[in-house]
Design a protein around this nucleic acid. Structure first.
Lengths: 137, 137
DNA sequence: TATGAAATGCAATAGTC
DNA sequence: GACTATTGCATTTCATA
């Protein structure tokens, strides 16, 4: 279904998603064509969801990374779900187990922008805020 | 320093990091070469940290995503820092403000594997655990 | 599911503005 | 910084095992 070679290919793609099929092929002892076929299959299977860039948010003018836990007061999960799914400041969002909570990673250009976001969140529930002071990974 | 066109390029790369320079060029009204030059510059500036794949961890045999907050008991931050920076299950880790804490996103293949990880974390401090029950973004 | 050969087309480089 | 023209090489496709 998904063998050791597939995992090796994913390993290299994780390091550099623009690596050439041929180059990956040399690393995993396959031709570029075989690598291309495997990657196509992994995409079709949904194992590979897509290819992206890792960006330095601070250098893009978003120096604030906030880790937010939201505690719902109402049971109107759906509305918050949609709010989070659409909001441009939300980089990651999870529904989590426990007292009807969500967990978010939010990127902000200023304290003011973050405050405004949090005010919007307050319409749905309370929150606990943690600010990142260093990104480890 | 970093203009509107750069941001547009980043926007397209975020959607598909393997999009061809030429194709991006058509979208932002530039030649492929001009796009390549800008991307090279953005990499040198460190705005682009790299190119990666988005993977479906569940389909790779890691159905559990845990969001963990660590509260240090000692002040031996450095040791935990290193532990987190190296550990293969840790997908993201941040030093956060407040009571000497870290925040982590951890991927696990089983409850047992997660428990083992958490036991290791206990050497450094206490933790609060939340399990993801749905990935929103 | 892999390879080898052929056709296509992108990327890299150099030169110009 | 961007464009055009040229060259080199990866990707794609197809036939084959």
């Amino acid at each position: 279904m998904i063998d050791r070679t597939d995992r090796e290919i994913l390993h290299w793609l994780k390091q550099d998603a623009r690596m050439q099929w041929k180059e990956i092929g040399e690393k995993v002892h396959l031709t570029g064509q075989a690598v291309a076929a495997r990657i196509r299959r992994l995409e079709e299977m949904g194992v590979i969801e897509g290819f992206t860039v890792k960006l330095d948010q601070a250098k893009l003018g978003h120096p604030i990374t906030a880790l937010v836990t939201v505690f719902m007061k109402s049971s109107n999960h759906r509305a918050l779900w949609q709010f989070l799914a659409d909001h441009p400041m939300v980089e990651e969002a999870y529904r989590i187990s426990g007292e009807g909570c969500f967990w978010l990673k939010v990127s902000a250009s200023s304290q003011k922008e973050l405050n405004h976001f949090l005010d919007d969140v307050l319409r749905y529930g309370n929150y606990r805020l943690n600010l990142s002071i260093e990104k480890i990974r």
